[in-house]
Simulated assay, not measured.
Amino acid sequence: MLVFEYKLRVRLLKSFEYVKASEAVSYFLDSALGKEEDFLKLHERREYKYYTMDSFYPCEKDGIYKQGKIYAIRIRTVKQELAEYFSRMLIHHTSGEMEGLTGELRIIPKKQLERVYSLTPVIIKTEKGYWREHMSVPEFEDRIKINLIKKYNQFNHTKIEENFQLYNLIEFKNKVPVKVPYKNITLLGDKINLIASNDPMAQELLYFSLGTGFGENNGRGAGFMNYQYI
């Protein structure tokens, strides 16, 4: 199992605020997936998507991404066929908000991880809303671990032993919930930093998370993780 990263340069066709960035990137990818039947079915199925992406780089100090300016976005996946599809289709693909220019596909090296940390908010959806209003931190930790294990089991058609320590320390980097617009509502998430466990299964899962994201709504840009090796 490998994690593929496609770094794409895009030109914006209109300006918009940073809070709309994830929606714009999601729509750009969705419209590309809709061009071929097999990948349209992937987009429409109610299951894990096995890809995630970050937002535009460089960031804008005034919070406004500028029409005509060129930015980079990273798309990651554990599905090789999807990585190859994105690398083939996104160059010169156009949505109403941006157009693809050039891209570079690479494999993220599988090395010992010291930590992984979220660049976009990690989201856990509950019937009662934002998790901090009715869940403890240990319950939150259980949810993100179970979610990641379920993704891994489904992707690899296996069932791993769950009694292991995924990380040694979790830090919340935000003092207040981070707002994430989604389908005319606002979800609330958190930026987290995880100090990796040396357990082999933990290392495997944390590497896997680089291509799938942590938590939920990964195909909408939530839970995109960066990393640091030992």
Rank of each mutant, 00 (worst) to 15 (best):
2 L>A: 12
2 L>I: 05
4 F>I: 04
4 F>N: 05
5 E>D: 05
7 K>S: 11
14 K>D: 08
15 S>V: 03
20 K>G: 01
20 K>L: 00
23 E>C: 02
29 L>A: 06
29 L>V: 09
30 D>I: 13
32 A>C: 13
34 G>D: 07
36 E>H: 07
37 E>A: 14
38 D>Y: 12
40 L>H: 11
43 H>L: 15
44 E>K: 08
44 E>T: 04
46 R>T: 04
47 E>F: 03
47 E>G: 10
49 K>D: 07
50 Y>S: 10
50 Y>E: 11
52 T>E: 12
53 M>V: 05
53 M>Y: 15
54 D>G: 10
54 D>H: 04
54 D>L: 02
56 F>W: 09
63 G>D: 01
63 G>T: 01
65 Y>L: 01
65 Y>D: 00
65 Y>E: 00
66 K>A: 04
66 K>F: 03
67 Q>S: 08
68 G>K: 09
69 K>L: 05
70 I>E: 09
71 Y>I: 02
72 A>W: 01
72 A>D: 10
74 R>T: 01
76 R>I: 00
77 T>H: 13
77 T>E: 14
78 V>M: 08
78 V>P: 08
78 V>S: 09
83 A>W: 06
87 S>G: 10
88 R>M: 08
89 M>Q: 13
90 L>I: 01
90 L>Q: 02
93 H>T: 07
93 H>F: 15
94 T>M: 13
94 T>S: 15
98 M>N: 06
99 E>Y: 12
99 E>C: 12
103 G>W: 08
104 E>Q: 13
106 R>H: 07
109 P>Y: 10
111 K>M: 14
112 Q>C: 11
114 E>K: 15
117 Y>T: 02
118 S>H: 02
119 L>S: 02
119 L>C: 02
121 P>S: 00
121 P>I: 00
124 I>T: 10
125 K>G: 01
126 T>H: 13
126 T>A: 13
126 T>R: 12
127 E>N: 15
127 E>F: 10
128 K>I: 06
129 G>H: 03
133 E>R: 05
134 H>N: 09
134 H>G: 04
135 M>E: 10
139 E>Q: 14
140 F>R: 05
143 R>F: 07
146 I>Y: 14
146 I>H: 14
146 I>V: 13
147 N>V: 00
147 N>C: 04
148 L>Q: 09
150 K>N: 11
153 N>M: 08
156 N>R: 06
158 T>I: 06
158 T>R: 08
159 K>V: 02
161 E>S: 11
162 E>Q: 12
168 N>L: 15
170 I>R: 05
170 I>T: 08
171 E>G: 06
172 F>R: 15
177 P>G: 08
178 V>D: 14
178 V>C: 12
181 P>K: 06
182 Y>A: 07
188 L>I: 06
188 L>F: 11
188 L>Y: 14
190 D>V: 14
190 D>L: 09
191 K>Y: 14
194 L>V: 03
198 N>C: 02
200 P>I: 04
202 A>N: 00
203 Q>T: 10
204 E>R: 06
205 L>K: 07
210 L>T: 05
210 L>D: 06
211 G>C: 14
212 T>D: 11
213 G>T: 04
214 F>M: 14
214 F>P: 03
217 N>R: 13
217 N>D: 04
218 N>M: 07
219 G>M: 03
219 G>T: 08
220 R>L: 01
220 R>D: 07
221 G>D: 06
222 A>W: 02
224 F>D: 03
225 M>V: 05
230 I>A: 10
